[in-house]
Design a protein around this nucleic acid. Structure first.
Lengths: 189, 189
DNA sequence: ATGGCACATGTACATCTCGACATGTCAAGA
DNA sequence: TCTTGACATGTCGAGATGTACATGTGCCAT
């Protein structure tokens, strides 16, 4: 259900084609809600059938741009204001952490270093992007501010996880490769 | 694919029934990887067919406990050590934030207050749970430490998002309902 | 003894998601 | 001219996920 509304939300910024939307997902939204092009195209068809969007224009190479309808705008606003927020996250790196005790200390240490580096890198690039927004690139329109807020959330989550990975490396004997005392690797029936 | 390995990981701690596993998911893992019982039962059947787990015992009320096999242990360790980590998250609250500019200021302010309260509450309860672990409840075995690490990640993410919601409320004019003038009281990150 | 409830497991169906494959278009350069 | 490659859209099928429904069991209080 979220994809449907995310597409409506993107189209509320202005007309766009499936290809445009797929690219937008790849760039910004992918980090909080992955979506591939097949899903996007089929969802667009459904939205059009439902009258929430309509064809705006045709361009070269079969390009078909859609535009949001009044009904679509009403629907996305209803979603934002009324629908309950689903607070269950899906984060594989954290799921894995429940099972760290099954890993060899060296593998775990390496994994945590990789994760830390990756989260730091993500945070850095998101932060520089946010900096650009703060310097006024992208304008001061409400939607630029919303993107800035979304960006900030992503920055903070990545920062938090980078710090967490570092904490885990430094705190836990299980995690350190050069800690003489690696104890039993578990798995007692 | 993650659910399969998560179940193997849980069974590596000891034998458990589908009902047990569903409960464990509801309690701890649900916040990072939601799963309902139908999916768990059918995945257990598939794992048994694949020889990665086997029936351990039958109890009252058709209770069927499974136990991980050597092959299953090898597989979950292979997953942890070798498989690439999927870093794409799925977080509806953050997806929604991209579209905050479509909301009425009052609705947005209310939503941000709710979100902040919710994240704070989650962080609090996770933190008290983590405190129990730190006081030695649950033992000092590697797997208790792994759970402690996982818990810490959840705490930090919820803290970060609570702070983010607060920052968004205080920072952005779009969000403030009763903001006569700029009275920024810090809290930037 | 029996009615209610939590325990325990499952089926059925709808929908979401994604990787693989297929098709055709326009632009630029060899 | 011909080929390459990015653009643009789509189908197909497998597998993942979730909601609703269905079934039976042991436990306990009345």
């Amino acid at each position: 259900m979220s994809l449907r509304h995310a597409l409506l939300g993107l189209l509320a910024e202005g007309p766009a084609s499936g290809y445009d939307l797929a690219r937008r997902f790849q760039e910004g939204l992918h980090s909080v809600w992955p979506a591939q092009h097949p899903q996007i195209y089929s969802e667009l068809s459904r939205l059009a059938t439902a009258g929430l969007i309509e064809v705006d224009s045709h361009g070269p190479r079969r390009r078909t741009a859609y535009r949001i309808t009044d009904a679509g705008l009403v629907e996305v606003r209803r979603w934002l204001a009324e629908d309950e927020v689903d607070h269950s996250f899906r984060m594989e790196p954290l799921l894995r952490s429940f099972f760290f005790w099954l890993m060899e200390p060296e593998d775990l240490a390496r994994r945590l270093r990789e994760e830390q580096a990756r989260f730091e890198q993500s945070a850095r690039s998101l932060r520089s992007y946010a900096g650009a927004k703060d310097r006024g690139e992208g304008g001061a329109a409400p939607r630029a501010r919303a993107q800035r807020i979304a960006l900030e959330a992503a920055v903070r989550v990545n920062d938090a996880l980078a710090e967490w990975a570092r904490w885990a490396r430094e705190t836990d004997p299980m995690a350190s490769e050069d800690f003489g005392g690696a104890e039993g690797d578990g798995a007692e029936g």
